[in-house]
Computed example of a mutant assay.
Amino acid sequence: MVVGKSVRSRALLGALIAVLTLSGCASGLGGGTYSRGEARRTMVVQFGTIESVRMVQLEGTKTPVGTVAGAAVGGIAGSSVGGNRGSAIGAVLGAVAGGLAGSAVEEGVTRTQGVEVTVQLESGQYLAVVQEDGGEQFRPGERVRILRDAGTTRVTR
Rank of each mutant, 00 (worst) to 15 (best):
K5Y: 08
K5D: 12
S6T: 11
V7D: 06
V7Q: 06
R10N: 15
R10Y: 12
L13Q: 11
G14V: 10
L16E: 03
L16H: 03
I17V: 10
S23M: 14
C25G: 10
G32Y: 04
T33S: 13
T33N: 11
Y34F: 09
Y34T: 06
S35D: 14
A39V: 14
R40A: 14
R40T: 13
R41F: 00
R41N: 08
T42L: 02
V44T: 14
V44L: 09
V45Y: 08
T49W: 00
I50L: 13
I50S: 12
E51M: 07
E51Y: 00
S52W: 00
Q57K: 10
L58A: 09
E59F: 07
K62R: 12
T63P: 15
G66K: 01
T67I: 07
A69G: 05
A69E: 02
G70F: 01
A72R: 00
G74E: 02
G74P: 00
G75Y: 00
G78L: 02
S79E: 03
S80P: 03
V81W: 04
G82T: 12
R85N: 09
G86T: 03
A91E: 02
V92I: 13
L93M: 10
G94C: 11
A95S: 15
A95V: 06
V96G: 02
G99V: 07
L100D: 00
L100G: 06
A101W: 02
S103I: 01
S103C: 05
E106L: 03
G108M: 12
G108P: 00
V109R: 03
R111I: 05
V115D: 09
V115E: 10
V115R: 05
L121H: 06
Y126I: 07
V129P: 01
V130N: 03
D133I: 12
G134D: 14
G134A: 12
Q137E: 08
F138D: 11
F138Y: 09
G141I: 10
E142A: 10
R143E: 15
V144L: 08
I146V: 12
I146R: 00
L147N: 11
R148C: 06
R148W: 05
A150V: 11
T153S: 14
T153W: 04
T153K: 04
R154C: 10
V155I: 11
R157Y: 11
R157C: 12
